[in-house]
């Protein structure tokens, strides 16, 4: 069995099984957790649960003016790398085929050149995020292994994907195998790492917004 066969066969399938198990386990656990009833009386003008949660979620996407200068760097880097990753994952024809293989749905892809440029920009944003995490004293202090691990498992597929396309270091088929294995590593550790924020961000931000809305504050 070649490296590519191992990656396209048992490795990616095992990773998918762990991914699905882990994500559903965590989401179910969270949704069924006991919650303390909120006995407070909602402030006058507090929005309905859904609208206040959704409104707060949208407002959270951009910092208030007072913080604009202080958060500019992380805001730009954060947006670039998140949009970049989304374009790579959902815009590259090869990745769409991978998704189609699992979910049975597909859509037209972007030209390889566009994806290559986006990948390089995304990689630069990822490196910038890491450098900031390692140099900013506060960020450095509150960072744990989990933060670096999340960075590592996201960056590895970007790097190996670029290397496979550019025929760097290994033969294409081997680097493609390494790339798929790196995706398998990301998928298998996703539910147990900070990457879970891809699902939980909707829950946490909406809930926070709802709480504050009841207390008459719009965050």
């Amino acid at each position: 069995m070649t490296l590519l066969e191992f990656a396209r066969g048992p490795a990616i399938n095992a990773a998918l099984v762990i991914f699905v198990f882990g994500v559903i386990w965590r989401l179910f656990w969270l949704l069924f957790l006991p919650r303390a009833a909120d006995h407070s009386v909602a402030k006058l003008g507090a929005g309905a649960a859904v609208s206040s949660a959704a409104g707060g979620f949208v407002r959270h996407m951009w910092p208030p003016r007072e913080y604009a200068a202080r958060t500019r760097f992380s805001l730009i880097v954060g947006y670039v790398l998140h949009f970049g990753l989304a374009i790579i994952v959902f815009g590259f024809a090869q990745h769409i085929l991978f998704i189609r293989d699992i979910f049975g749905i597909g859509w037209p892809g972007l030209p390889t050149g566009v994806i290559t440029v986006v990948s390089v920009i995304t990689l630069a944003a990822l490196i910038a995020a890491l450098v900031r995490r390692m140099t900013n004293p506060v960020l450095k202090m509150i960072s744990t292994f989990a933060d670096y691990w999340a960075w590592f498992v996201v960056t590895l597929p970007v790097v190996t994907g670029l290397m496979a396309v550019s025929h760097l270091l290994l033969r294409y088929e081997d680097m493609l195998g390494v790339h798929i294995l790196s995706v398998a590593l990301m998928l298998a550790t996703f539910p147990f790492s900070k990457l879970m924020h891809a699902f939980l961000v909707f829950v946490t931000r909406s809930q926070t917004s709802f709480f504050y809305s009841r207390r008459g504050s719009h965050v």
Binding site: L16, I24, L27, F28, W29, L30, L31, P34
Partner: peptide, 15 residues
């Protein structure tokens, strides 16, 4: 199967 086991495990953990 993983999805089903995950759902049961999640509900069990919450319980």
């Amino acid at each position: 199967g993983a999805a089903a086991v995950g759902a049961v495990a999640g509900a069990g953990s919450a319980f």
